[in-house]
Structure formats: structure tokens, C-alpha cells
Design a protein around this nucleic acid. Structure first.
Length: 291
DNA sequence: AATTAATTCAACCGCAGGCTG
DNA sequence: CCAGCCTGCGGTTGAATTAAT
């Protein structure tokens, strides 16, 4: 439709924010609250586009942000949520108070991916690398790639690595019995028959606050925004609270057969990103609900 | 001490979807 | 119904930082 980008105006600053700009933005939002990002820069006297202001506020200036390293618990939560949601960083962030989607995305790409590779787990599928490699036709190449990635990690975790804390972290992982049993170095993969596809794993220790119901989901008053968005996805995808459509959409997948697409009409009509996500979610959800 | 390589993360970009007139 | 506006999201980039040589 040929819409001009919001940041095309001349005389808008780009790049790193200065302290003064930060102060202006904080002061303005304190006085007027969030929202109307388009007009905010002008009102706040900032030579930035609204998008940039929003990003700066959400990712860096918000007072409720938790700065500092991720804890081991947060690591595990991120892994579990990623297994459930995939690269839906905003959904994951919504469940980690004080963390932003950008922060989690970065952390995932720089730390957790490698951590999983070191455990012998494919970061995308969350299945053992051997299974992931066996599942693909050019499996050997992929397997070699994963091995290389894991080896890189071992080098990075060697003494003298720049982050002592990170190093300690990796040592804990590599010394754990679980890591030993899954380690790509320990297992002579080629000698052993390819393992059966991993069954869907359950995470019963976390409350995802998710539900599937024939009736429209009632949101609690104080529910956070991301949760509301999810509920909206679940209902709109099903066809504007149409219970019949909701059942139709997921019935084919209720048994949770990984990799098997839902072939019902509702799924065939799903073309948007949210609908795609909702389908994945509905596929995955039963195994997290003690079905 | 200087240089190179690796890593991190703040910020940017383009796109999609909801909303509104 | 349609076009345009606004916001939010996910992927990517590149400057800054740190480790290694």
C-alpha cells in the first residue's frame, strides 16, 4: 500500500541514546504515561521516531526491568517456554517478570542455544541431536555441524573464558549426570542405533496459565496484556468465539503428533502468523495439561 | 602494548495485524 | 469494504567490549 516508514523524517537521531534523551523520555512518560508513540517524540522534544522511543523505553528504561544476569531458574524457564512457544519471544517475556523479549532473544541466541547444543539437544526442536540428525535426509552434515557447535562451546567454556560466571555455569551443566548421558562427546552416535523419536515431554512443574475450553476463556481482571493477546489469538483463530470451529481446529491434533499438520478446514484457512502460532499452540497444549 | 578474533546486546528494519474513519 | 495509521513482533546488524595471541 506504499505507506511511508515512520522513521523516514529528516532530522531524526539514530543509534545509541544519550543520557539526555533518556531523561527526556523518562520524564515525559512519567508525566503522561505510555502510549501514542507516534506523537511522543515531538511532545517530549526528542529527535527520534516513535518506534525508537518505544523500544528504548520497553527494553531499557522501564522501571520494572530486572537488570543483570539470568539465573539458572530463568534459563530453565526460557528453555521450557521456548519448547512450548518457539521463537515467540514476547510470549516468553510475558512469563518472565522484568525481562524483555529483546533481552531473552539475545540471551537465547548467545547463551542458551549453545547450552542446549552442549547438552546434545537441538535448540529448535528440543530433541536429542541424534534424533534430529537422523530425521533429516542430509543428516550427517547437520550432525557434524552440531558437533562443531558443541565443540566450540567446550572451547569457550575452558579456563580463561571472559565470563567467569558463565564458565562456572557451563561446568555445572557438563558435570551433571544428565549432561554426561546426553553429551555429544560421550556418545558414539554412529555405533548405536538411532533412538526412537523422543516422546512429548511434560513440564508439570510450571504453571503456564493456559487453557483450552469450549467456552470462551474468561480472563481475570488483572491479567497481563500478553495473556490477553494469547486468549484473543485462541478465540479469534477459532472463528470469533465459535466453539464448533474451535473444536474443529484442534481435534486432529489432540493426540499431539509432532510434525503432523492439522488438516481441518480451519487450519487450512490459517494464513497469518498468529493463526500459525495458535495452531502450534493447540497442538502442543494437551501434553502440558496432564492429559 | 598492539593487534586480531570472538562475543554481546542495543538498536534498527521490515512486516503483519488491529483499529479507525 | 477499504485504505491508511499505529503498534508490536521477530530477525538482523553493527558498535562496543573483552579475550586471546
Amino acid at each position: 500500500m506504499g505507506r511511508s516508514p515512520c522513521c523516514e523524517q529528516a532530522h531524526t537521531n539514530k543509534g545509541a541514546w544519550t543520557k539526555e534523551e533518556d531523561q527526556r523520555l523518562i520524564a515525559y512518560i512519567k508525566a503522561h504515561g505510555e502510549g501514542c508513540w507516534r506523537s511522543l517524540p515531538k511532545a517530549a522534544g526528542l529527535l527520534r521516531c516513535g518506534k525508537s522511543c518505544r523500544l528504548r523505553w520497553i527494553n531499557y528504561l522501564r522501571p520494572d526491568l530486572k537488570r543483570g544476569n539470568f539465573t539458572e531458574e530463568e534459563d530453565e524457564l526460557i528453555i521450557k517456554f521456548h519448547e512450548l512457544f518457539g521463537n515467540k519471544w514476547s510470549l516468553i517475556a510475558g512469563r518472565l517478570p522484568g525481562r524483555t523479549d529483546n533481552e531473552i532473544k539475545n540471551y537465547w541466541n548467545t547463551h542458551i542455544k549453545r547450552k542446549l547444543l552442549a547438552r546434545g539437544i537441538d535448540p529448535q526442536t528440543h530433541r536429542p541431536l541424534t534424533a534430529a540428525a537422523a530425521a533429516s535426509a542430509p543428516g550427517q552434515q547437520q550432525q557434524q555441524h552440531y558437533q562443531l557447535e558443541a565443540q566450540k562451546l567446550h572451547v569457550a567454556a575452558a579456563p580463561g573464558h571472559r565470563h567467569q560466571q558463565q564458565q562456572d555455569h557451563f561446568e555445572v551443566i557438563s558435570n551433571s549426570p544428565e549432561a554426561c548421558s546426553r553429551s555429544s562427546d560421550d556418545e558414539p552416535r554412529s555405533a548405536t542405533p538411532p533412538p526412537a523419536p523422543a516422546p512429548p515431554r511434560r513440564h508439570l512443574d510450571i504453571d503456564l496459565n493456559l487453557s483450552i475450553s469450549l467456552a470462551p476463556y474468561q480472563l481475570p481482571e488483572e491479567t497481563s496484556k500478553p495473556l490477553k493477546q494469547e486468549a484473543a489469538v485462541a478465540t479469534t483463530t477459532a472463528g470469533n468465539n465459535n466453539a464448533t470451529a474451535a473444536v474443529c481446529l484442534c481435534l486432529n491434533s489432540l493426540g499431539y503428533r509432532p510434525g503432523v499438520e492439522c488438516v481441518c478446514g480451519g487450519a487450512a484457512a490459517a494464513s497469518s502468523r498468529q493463526e500459525q502460532w495458535a495452531r502450534n499452540f493447540l497442538q502442543a497444549a494437551p501434553c502440558y495439561r496432564g492429559q
